[in-house]
Nucleic acid binder design. Sequence first.
DNA 1: GAACGCGTTCCATAGAGCGGAACATCAGCC
DNA 2: GGCTGATGTTCCGCTCTATGGAACGCGTTC
Lengths: 257, 257
Amino acid sequence: MDELFSSALNQSVQRAVSLLKAFDTDASELGVSELARTVGLPKSTVARLLATLEHEGLVERVPHADKYRLGFLLVRLAGRVSHFGDVRAVARPVLARLSEQSQESVHLGVLDGAEVVNVDQIAGPHLIRETNWLGRRTPLHCAANGKAILAFQPEAVIARVLAAPLARVTPLTMTDPRLVRGELAEVRERGYAWTLGEVEEGLNGVAAAIRNGAGEVFAAVSVSGPAYRVPPARIPSLGELVVAAAAEISRRLGSRV
Amino acid sequence: MDELFSSALNQSVQRAVSLLKAFDTDASELGVSELARTVGLPKSTVARLLATLEHEGLVERVPHADKYRLGFLLVRLAGRVSHFGDVRAVARPVLARLSEQSQESVHLGVLDGAEVVNVDQIAGPHLIRETNWLGRRTPLHCAANGKAILAFQPEAVIARVLAAPLARVTPLTMTDPRLVRGELAEVRERGYAWTLGEVEEGLNGVAAAIRNGAGEVFAAVSVSGPAYRVPPARIPSLGELVVAAAAEISRRLGSRV
DNA sequence: GAACGCGTTCCATAGAGCGGAACATCAGCC
DNA sequence: GGCTGATGTTCCGCTCTATGGAACGCGTTC
């Protein structure tokens, strides 16, 4: 067990959280037995944990069904996740406009260590259910957001990121640091980054870097969609859109470059 | 204790959730001792629960400080709160535009029983920290959102809501059903509702009803702000904005009225 | 240097949490 | 209508998890 203190972590709380995580699927309503199978616990244990989570507001019963779904306390607490809160608030209207213009999903990613954290997401207008990237971390070397951010980091940062083994997330992911370096140079030249099935097969995207008040690149805004709606031929025009959106967000954050 | 089963609720999980709830303040970064005082538990118990929550991603350590804050798993799971998810996704670009136009906070509320649940919120551009309404429920008879929704409910629903004792949330809250009925008639006439310090002292707001594909009113969009920025004189012009926004959202949801 | 408050760590103990078993209900099939 | 399988609910004996008091090191303030 991963012990942070000499005393173990709290098993009951871990189990309860694993139940919450079990709802992180497209099937957002789950029954007791299904949850028991998913998390590998007896039904009575799951039932008791669900009763507690329901009482506290983290899950709720689906009306007229013997199923549960995530509760509204999560939305409330998520509103208090203050990390990146300011940039999210500032960016949100621009993201909304970008979603309208591009007619695709739009994301805001922020540099966090050697990864990008997706801190906001506006779904496209299409009916096909999309991946929920909120809260997920993606590596810098293959996500459009990540490449847009990495390209404008100090050389020491780029070297450190590329010195580590680069994960092959899909068969199309570049893992040769020299190839990644070459693409980062092209990103700086074009002003935007792109990904073609490198993070998720069949998913393409374009991103541009966002600067803070000191002019440093710390975030990126991106547009993404399935390859049949976002083919390579569409990258340049989407590139212009994301560059304009990123510039607007940067300006609002006080950047003068 | 509120026991749903003969077996009690899980104390450890309740304690862990009470810690999460303790972060639901304007002071979003808290230390072990402060949290121990807030929730009334020994520091060692709090430390161990925090370690578990951190390990699972529900809280995180603030870099270079001995404090904790809410973690990003909350954002991720909140994105999975599917109840009202579709209307949130549809409404969000319109809310963003409305926030730009009004330069105030904007909210999306949905009818849930005899209350309104605030399911989305876009903060205004001002620096003053605003109340986090996300996930909170407000009574129908005094919130702008609530009045906008209630005014267009079937008479049986209105009668049932007004038959119950109306809570006096602030000294300005109307609690006489006849006065509320009169104002609902005026809401139908004007097309928008308003609140003047009835939900929170010094807070004013305007709201308009949203219809679903069947033409039924089930939600509302509102603008709100402190009384000195949203004085009564400004209600009509903000009314026009929210009516237009609500109509746009209704149209996107398939309403033909 | 002393006092104070912080976060961390340890460990003996008690009762909270566990999970197996049994039960009632419901839907589907024959 | 009867049977089967899966569901969610409830109970209770048992054990080991979770608890909290005490001690400690560290940083800050006076």
